[in-house]
Design a protein around this nucleic acid. Structure first.
Length: 215
DNA sequence: GGTCGGATCATCT
DNA sequence: GATGATCCGACCG
């Protein structure tokens, strides 16, 4: 098997190299409000990214690429060029989708945690067993989009899974907090989410109501 | 509405 | 052999 994205090639879209080649926290923040378009298995599904987490690379103890473990077969995509997918399985049953960022070789990635559905709600709902199409949580997001490890290393500039960054949301709509579910570096404020928005995880909070502003 | 425990396995030590 | 960037259904109030 050949992995051209491991050889430091440019992505199909130079803008993506520029956008995703930036430091991970900036990318995680600016991905809020961006559209994620999946045409996996011929079903078109679109959502607005409303929650992300940044994982900072070797110096981040919560990262899969922390110095302690370094480069492994699982995390090899993180060490490749930016704008590619890092997909992994967690708890033996859920897929999680990340976008690699930063310079080629620097293992940074943004975990995509939640989407507010924009199109294809019927498909998303069906894939989730008739439940709400709202993709709140990284595992649900992958189910709703049809993402599995088939997409490992995929270039987000290309179908069947594309990220269409827009103008960054105004600061007033963006909140930060510690990352969810991590034990190491739990207080690092690297989770970014849209204020008061449907789909966003609320540890200890009330149920979500509003939809994402500023579409 | 909120909390709790079980499911389930690739990956790394 | 232990661990985990989670989800869901059951149960409680």
């Amino acid at each position: 098997m050949d992995f051209p994205w491991l050889r430091g090639q440019q992505s199909a879209d130079p803008f993506h190299d520029e956008f995703f080649g930036r430091p991970v926290a900036s990318v995680a923040r600016d991905l809020l409000g961006a559209r994620l378009v999946s045409t996996i298995h011929g079903e078109r599904v679109v959502g607005v990214i409303v929650e992300t987490e940044a994982y900072m690379g070797a110096a981040d103890p919560a990262s899969h690429a922390a110095t302690r473990s370094g480069r492994t077969n699982r995390n090899r995509a993180m060490f490749g060029p930016p704008g590619r997918a890092y997909v992994y399985r967690i708890y033996g049953m859920h897929w999680c989708l990340n976008v690699v960022t930063g310079e080629d070789g620097d293992p940074q990635a943004v975990l995509l945690r939640a989407l507010d559905p924009l199109d294809g709600e019927d498909v998303m709902s069906e894939r989730r067993g008739g439940r709400s199409p709202v993709a709140s949580g990284p595992g649900r997001l992958c189910v709703a989009l049809g993402v599995t490890d088939e997409l490992y290393g995929h270039d987000f500039a290309l179908p069947p899974l594309q990220i269409l960054p827009g103008w960054p949301l105004p600061d007033g709509l963006v909140e930060r907090s510690g990352r969810i579910g991590v034990s190491a570096a739990a207080d690092w404020p690297l989770r970014f989410f849209v204020r008061n928005c449907r789909g966003v995880s609320r540890p200890g909070g009330s149920s979500p109501r509003t939809i994402v502003p500023g579409r």
